[in-house]
Computed example of a mutant assay.
Amino acid sequence: MLVWLAEYLTQYYSAFNVFSYLTLRSILSILTALFISLFFGPKLIRKLQRMQIGQTVRDDGPESHFAKSGTPTMGGILILGAILCSTLLWADLTNKYVWVTVFVVAAFGLIGYVDDYRKVIRKDPKGLIAKWKYFWQSLVAIVVAFFLYSTSTLAAETALVVPFFKNVLPQLGLMYLLLTYFVIVGTSNAVNLTDGLDGLAIVPTILVAAAFAVIAYVTGNVNFSAYLHIPYIPMTDELVIVCTAIVGAGLGFLWFNTYPAQVFMGDVGSLALGAVLGIIAVLVRQEFVLFIMGGVFVMETVSVILQVGSYKLRGQRIFRMAPIHHHYELKGWPEPRVIVRFWIISIMLVLIGLATLKIR
């Protein structure tokens, strides 16, 4: 929005041309989202407290979590608001990729909002029934997949990029639709499962988004993409603004979500954040790198799958409790120790993911 205004004013004052630079706009995107989160955070927390929109805690969970009961939730509204405002202010709104990410954030945020609304306001412990949640997630993901596939004009847009192999770029064809679906829906639910401790989900999200800002920049730059032997996809560099908005909004939310948390993001935040990371990975053709950098999300999801599968097949549980962060809590690890160690793992995995761009 402000890009259009700056372009118009440039004809009168050439100094406004500075806003055409992606690096400046990415910095302003971070700062805008961060400011929005820090400014409106306390107001939202007080509003949620007045409305008695508090977290419910499972009876079979770690005893240390009982004190969290009643902590304001649905704070993801703050994150999504900051992301959308910052993106709409500083991104080039003629870019279709920007609008795809905006749509995914809004749609998955709405699904999460309905789920949270049913749980904490209507006091329905089941929230949005699982089959309906997956139905709406699937519908949004399929619509996005078909749109991207039908509007693709370059072979690179539907090629599968395999890490460590610069010449392995198989064309996916219709398999692109299936991959896009699973990446978006899978990442959305993986982040949702990870969001069980104070700050546990938001920091890996920030780290992965920051890494994708770098990847989006080099993917949309013909010189850098050629140097790194990755597909050049025009216009993906504008996704840097979306990624930096996620970083800024996430940092602002972490201010209130760090241990002991003053607010939780709820499904409205976790489902949308996971989905937007998934769609960005699809747009820059780095689904495998997302799998590496988001290893903490993968680990949490796999622990739940193994736990459920083992109990159904053998009647035994592998972990004391799933997702796996609860397993370590029940082993006696203090919550801050679990959180920080998972953050450290996430930093390592993000660095490994970035290294795959060069090691080819």
Rank of each mutant, 00 (worst) to 15 (best):
T87G: 03
K43V: 15
F342L: 02
V144K: 02
I206E: 00
F103Q: 06
V218I: 12
G112L: 10
K96M: 12
G266P: 01
S29T: 07
I280P: 00
V161E: 02
V242G: 04
A210K: 07
I215S: 02
Q307G: 03
G269M: 11
Y217F: 15
A156M: 08
W255E: 14
V240Y: 14
V268F: 05
S225H: 00
E335Q: 06
V208W: 00
Y227V: 12
L2C: 12
T56V: 14
L283S: 09
E238G: 12
L110E: 11
V183K: 00
F291E: 00
V114Q: 09
Y13W: 15
V263Q: 10
M235F: 15
R25I: 08
L290F: 04
L160A: 06
K68A: 05
S346R: 05
L251E: 14
A130W: 15
L2H: 05
G186Y: 08
M321Y: 02
I233R: 06
H327I: 10
G309P: 05
L44C: 08
F147Y: 15
I279T: 13
A156L: 06
S138N: 05
S303L: 01
S225R: 09
V218R: 10
A216C: 12
A275Y: 00
H325W: 06
A15L: 14
L28T: 09
M299G: 05
S37D: 05
E287Q: 13
S29N: 09
S225M: 08
L84G: 06
G76P: 06
G266F: 07
L28R: 09
A281V: 11
G278M: 00
K133V: 05
V338Y: 06
L357F: 10
S26K: 04
L174I: 13
F35M: 09
L271R: 04
A211N: 02
A106E: 04
F212P: 08
T194Q: 02
L207R: 01
A209Y: 03
W343H: 08
I79G: 01
W4T: 14
V120F: 15
L271C: 05
L80C: 10
S29H: 07
C243Y: 13
I305S: 08
V57A: 12
V268T: 08
L313T: 11
K131M: 11
T23P: 11
R320S: 04
Y232N: 01
I206G: 03
I36P: 04
M74W: 14
T236L: 14
Y8V: 11
Y227H: 15
G196A: 00
D60W: 10
V98R: 11
L84Y: 00
I129L: 13
Y113M: 15
E157G: 11
G250M: 01
T23D: 12
L148W: 10
L154P: 10
D115R: 08
L351P: 12
M293S: 00
G81C: 11
R285L: 02
P231T: 13
I121S: 13
K166M: 11
M1E: 14
L200A: 01
Q171N: 13
V350W: 09
N221S: 07
I345K: 00
A226E: 14
W99I: 06
S303D: 09
F146A: 09
